[in-house]
Design a protein around this nucleic acid. Structure first.
Length: 860
RNA sequence: GCCGGAGUGGUGGAACUGGUAUACACACAGCACUCAAAAUGCUGCGGCGAAAGCCAUGCGAGUUCGAGUCUCGCCUCCGGCACCA
């Protein structure tokens, strides 16, 4: 081996070996335990960013560790290749979306390969290729046939100046379009929907049996699906023109209803608008702004009476109907009963518009509440509700629902917050929806023999909207029923459709069909790794899509991802200058930091002009804050292993990771040091095998630490996924080896055992360096196929242990006792201790608490 | 607004099941080596204090022999909110 660690050379050598031996190519092998490890595939945006590198390093470490356990490991990689940025690039730079995408894929693939990730590149896929989306289109036609895909009107963000549909991210917080700056309107257009709500109950219930997912993700999904038990209640319109149905989870508050609120696009509101210009104007106003729920819910709550009343189903009293901007047509029935006494939002609205507030629930403990000042939203006892008075909330819900059911005015009902998945996009760079519109307006699926419906890649972006609309050769087709002229759908699919099943396609990327038998071998994914930002949408859509595939017989289980690891963001410091109007952000590499004697940051200057810049917050790496660090620069300077080691060492995978150039330097230093230690060890000549019988005390101590470290690191890497603490433990062991200076045969033997353990444990994290060091230590097999070290219990034992002594819970001393000391002996040793006696000092000992193996607490 | 998460030295973080707060690093300071610098090695490093010791895990209460960890109430920041991926 070389005396100096040269990462560029080491990494080239290791990668050439892996390539030459097809080291990561896998096939189905029913005789071995399989392990499918998957990282969320990237959108090919142009260059790899640090978030990618972190995600893929975590996945790679897990994959390589599982391989060292002897499993048949699949780790594939592909490209989430459809999406908005390619279309924007096409419009702005006049480069075809396909060309832009494929060039980005080429470049980023090179970057991934340079990182040394153990991917089976033979399985690479890109979702924008017809051989990929053919299967997706086929499944959609099946869903259409089963009624799982349907068409209805839905609201979109409409830019009245650009005359185009905008994505939510293209609408700013004031509700204006990103390019035109015009106030966006909500407009209804026909949309394709997938009936995810058919699976709502199943998707909800299965969450209870997913121990491999983080609890917070399960919580978020449960809340998103939002199963609730309540009642649907009918309020008849006072003029007899029909019913107004609402859903409520608080039927116990029915007698507290003082007004009704309907969405601006509710038929009742629209009808009222036809005879009243004021109402029509208000409805128009309600349509301003984007469709995003966050925008709508943070708006000022506004409303207007429609001059219409309903009849209260119990009291028979007339209740006014209002139109309100916070009621959404897409949720439930588009109408709500308002109980200002017991709902905070209704209370705020009633207070603003002078509507009556009545109390119908009292606290169970009889406490007084001022219902006019604040809504009482907890459960309690029903009051002011006639025959229902005195019931508790739970009983009242049932009784009132039963009372309504007897009179055909309502019934108990389970509702879900989850809405059907709108998959239509009025955009070009996406998978065409495989549907045909007939003369009579009906839609039919494209016949299987005509799939895929290929998206033309050579198109002209002129004007607004999808270029497909200007392509008769794409649109014009014939009805599969009777051969008459018909029109192809020009909407494309939400890109979440492609990412809902790519993990299955990796099992059989060359299959003629959507999936084949190989999927049943590899699925489900054993370990999925990706950003927490996907906690709900992508992961929920995938769970739904997987069940649809299951119902088609394509896969065998219910859940696609057995274990989930959600990784945190990569953040870094920001620097800026304000000139009163514009804030200019400076890249960290262009800034020089000033520190005081303690190392505390006291200021920053721009290297260029030496003038001060303001130190901003630590934020997610982004173009807008100019605080991104290019992984390529880091790999060029330090090598991939150093970058990998740094990312795994600096924080646990599920927390944010703060980038620091100097800390990267530290990781590089560690690898150089380890390299030198192995070099010096090998240069001293072959060490004999360890004879454990007659080792000196320092040799025994080092062996004990070696095996304790193996046990800890195995647990950290295999169970806890706390790679940072695993690396810290390996560093401690490395420090101990450096201090161990026994040059006898036995000493060198023990040191050799320690170095082998260190290299094996680091192999998943710094695979290139480990590849070379492993050979240098005289091992024949490549380290990727080495067995993960196993801790020797007998080497971990120690004859004595140190206990912590406390008096009244405060640390006062320590004592060494034999490892097998009895409780009585430990107690006696503690009370006899000088430090303990000093603090007990004549006071009566009330209790002595002994925590075996840890501490003794004397309470006085 | 709703749902979820986080807050510990100068910095990233450790403390896994209520039991030694600050492991491992980075930064900083000092020393050695050097003509010098870099690299490397060694030492120190939460605050106050001469010491004994006291104080300290965002803020305020509580439970406990014992709380970074559990409970309640706040504050700040971050992620998601259905057309960014």
């Amino acid at each position: 081996m070389d005396e100096q660690y040269d990462p560029q050379r080491v990494e080239r050598e290791a990668q050439e070996f892996w390539n030459a031996t097809d080291a990561f190519k896998v096939t189905e092998d029913p005789s071995r335990e399989k392990f499918y490890c998957l990282s969320m595939f990237p959108y090919p945006s142009g260059r790899l960013h640090m978030g990618h590198v972190r995600n893929y390093t975590i996945g790679d470490v897990i994959s390589r560790y599982q391989r060292m356990l002897g499993k048949n490991v699949l780790q594939p990689m592909g490209w989430d290749a459809f999406g908005l940025p390619a279309e924007n690039a096409a419009i702005q730079n006049n480069v075809p979306a396909a060309k832009w995408t494929y060039e980005n894929i080429d470049y980023m693939k090179g970057q991934l390969q340079r990182m040394g990730f153990a991917y089976d590149w033979d399985r690479e896929l890109a979702t924008c290729k017809p051989d990929y989306y053919k299967g997706e289109q086929w499944l959609l036609t099946r869903m259409a046939e089963k009624g799982l895909m349907y068409k209805r009107l839905a609201e979109v963000n409409w830019d009245p100046v650009e005359q185009t549909v905008l994505a939510n991210e293209q609408v700013d917080s004031e509700g204006r379009g990103w390019r035109s700056g015009a106030l966006v309107e909500r407009r209804e257009i026909p949309h394709w929907f997938l009936k995810i709500t058919d699976y709502a109950q199943e998707l909800h219930d299965a969450l209870d049996e997913m121990p491999g997912w983080p609890a917070e993700v399960l919580k978020m999904q449960r809340d998103w699906i939002g199963r609730s038990e309540g009642a649907e209640i009918t309020f008849e319109l006072a003029d007899g023109s029909g019913p107004l149905n609402v859903y409520t989870t608080r039927a116990d508050t029915l007698l507290g209803v003082t007004y009704m609120a309907v969405a601006a696009t509710h038929p009742i509101a629209l009808a009222a608008g036809e005879s009243s210009p004021e109402i029509a104007a208000f409805i128009d106003e309600c349509r301003r702004g984007g469709t995003s729920l966050a925008a709508i819910e943070t708006m000022e709550k506004r409303g207007m009476p429609l001059g219409i009343h309903v009849v209260h189903p119990v009291t028979g009293e007339k209740v006014p109907v209002w139109v309100a901007n916070f009621v959404l047509m897409g949720y439930g029935t588009g109408a709500v009963m308002a109980v200002p006494g017991h709902d905070s939002r209704d209370h705020a609205f009633a207070t603003a518009y002078g509507l009556p507030i009545v109390q119908v629930i009292a606290p169970a403990d009889g406490a007084d509440v001022d219902i006019q000042a604040e809504a009482y939203v907890d459960y309690g006892v029903v009051v002011n509700s006639g025959e229902f008075d005195g019931l508790d909330s739970a009983a009242a819900k049932q009784r009132i629902a039963a009372w309504l059911a007897e009179r055909d005015l309502g019934e108990e009902q389970v509702n879900f917050r989850l809405r059907d998945w709108g998959v239509s996009r009025q955009r070009y760079w996406g998978c065409p929806v495989p549907m045909i519109t007939l003369d009579n307006g009906d839609s039919v699926p494209v016949p299987e023999s005509d799939l895929p419906v290929v998206l033309p890649e050579d198109v002209a972006h002129v004007g607004h909207g999808s270029p497909l609309n200007g392509m008769p050769e794409f649109i014009e087709t014939v009805s599969p029923l009777d051969g008459k002229p018909a029109r192809r759908e020009t909407d494309t699919l939400d890109t979440f459709a492609e990412s809902s099943w790519y993990y299955a396609r990796f099992a059989c990327p060359d299959s003629e069909d959507m999936l084949d038998e190989r999927a049943k071998y590899w699925l489900p994914v054993d370990q999925y790794v990706g950003g927490i930002e996907h906690a709900v949408l992508h992961l929920l859509y995938s769970r739904f899509w997987y069940r649809v595939m299951r119902d088609e017989g394509l896969v065998e289980n219910d859940e696609p991802f057995t274990n989930l690891l959600t990784q945190g963001m990569v953040v870094s410091e920001t620097y800026y200058r304000d000139d009163g109007k514009v804030r200019t952000w400076y890249a960290p590499r262009d800034v020089e930091i000033a520190r005081d004697d303690r190392g505390k940051v006291v200021g920053a200057r721009l290297k260029d002009d030496g003038e001060p810049v303001t130190v901003g917050r630590v934020e997610k790496m982004s173009k807008s804050k100019n605080n991104g660090v290019d992984p390529q620069d880091m790999v060029d300077r330090y090598g991939a292993d150093t970058v990998r080691l740094y990312m795994m060492f600096t924080s646990p995978p599920d927390q944010k990771l703060e980038w620091s150039d100097s800390a990267v330097e530290g990781s590089s230093r560690y690898l150089k040091r380890l390299w030198r230690m192995v070099h010096d060890h090998v240069a001293a000549g072959a060490a004999p095998a360890v004879e454990t019988a007659n080792l000196s005390e320092p040799d025994t101590a080092l062996r004990r630490l070696v095996h304790q470290t193996i046990a800890k690191v195995s647990d950290d890497v295999g169970r806890r996924y706390t790679f940072n603490t695993a690396i810290a433990a390996v560093m401690e062991l490395t420090n101990a080896v450096a201090r161990h200076d026994d040059s006898s045969d036995a000493g060198r033997g023990v040191r050799g055992e320690a170095l082998e353990a260190i290299v094996a444990m680091l192999a998943p994290i710094v695979p290139h360096a480990a590849h070379v060091l492993w050979q240098a230590l005289g091992r024949d097999e490549p380290v990727i196929d080495a067995r993960w070290p196993v801790a020797d219990e007998s080497a971990m034992q120690s004859a004595s242990m140190q206990l912590v002594l406390q008096v009244n819970g405060k640390l006062r001393g320590r004592v060494d006792v034999p490892a097998d000391a009895s409780r009585e002996a430990v107690e006696a040793a503690a009370l006899a201790n000088d430090d303990v006696q000093r603090f007990v000092a004549g006071q009566a000992v009330k209790r002595v608490i002994v925590v075996p193996g840890k501490l003794v607490n004397v309470v006085v």
